[in-house]
């Protein structure tokens, strides 16, 4: 009856932004990003990936409440880069990785399909003999 529409899980509201950045004033080089209409898919991906950069001193995410489709990502850097740029760089690197993956997948898939079909042809020929 009063259940929220399920598309509210992934469609941004009228005055909502995908990412909101808020500086953490109590700690230097720290910001909290709020990602609206996103979940663990992106939260875990970004926060874990950030750990692999040596200029990141802290990164973690939380979903403040399970009924609201948003997560907060807190990032601290060593000061050589802003948290915002660090997150941006991280996302760009993941996109690049996925591009490599996509291309490798394409070639391997085609190769495997050709082998399969060749095998099938061979079996058919052997049966016909």
């Amino acid at each position: 009856m009063n259940a929220p529409d399920r598309f509210e899980l992934f469609l941004l509201g009228d005055d909502e932004k995908k990412v909101e950045e808020k500086d953490e004033t109590r700690v230097p080089n720290t910001a909290v990003f709020t990602f609206n209409k996103e979940d663990h898919t992106l939260g875990n991906l970004i926060s874990q990936r950030l750990h692999s950069y040596e200029y990141i001193t802290f990164s973690a995410y939380k979903i403040p409440h399970p009924l609201f489709a948003k997560f907060e990502l807190r990032v601290t850097t060593d000061g050589s880069i802003t948290p915002r740029d660090a997150v941006k760089k991280c996302c760009e690197d993941v996109v690049a990785d996925l591009e490599v993956l996509s291309r490798s997948f394409t070639t391997e898939w085609l190769g495997k399909r050709i082998i399969n079909e060749g095998e099938q042809d061979r079996l058919n020929r052997e049966r016909d003999l």
């Binding site: 995908k18 992106l42 915002r84 996302c91």
Partner: peptide
Amino acid sequence: QQGIRVLQQKLANVIQELQGG
């Protein structure tokens, strides 16, 4: 392949948003 595209699109949105400022 679609999964990869959708994930890239998601990240692209984030990058664009972070660039916006």
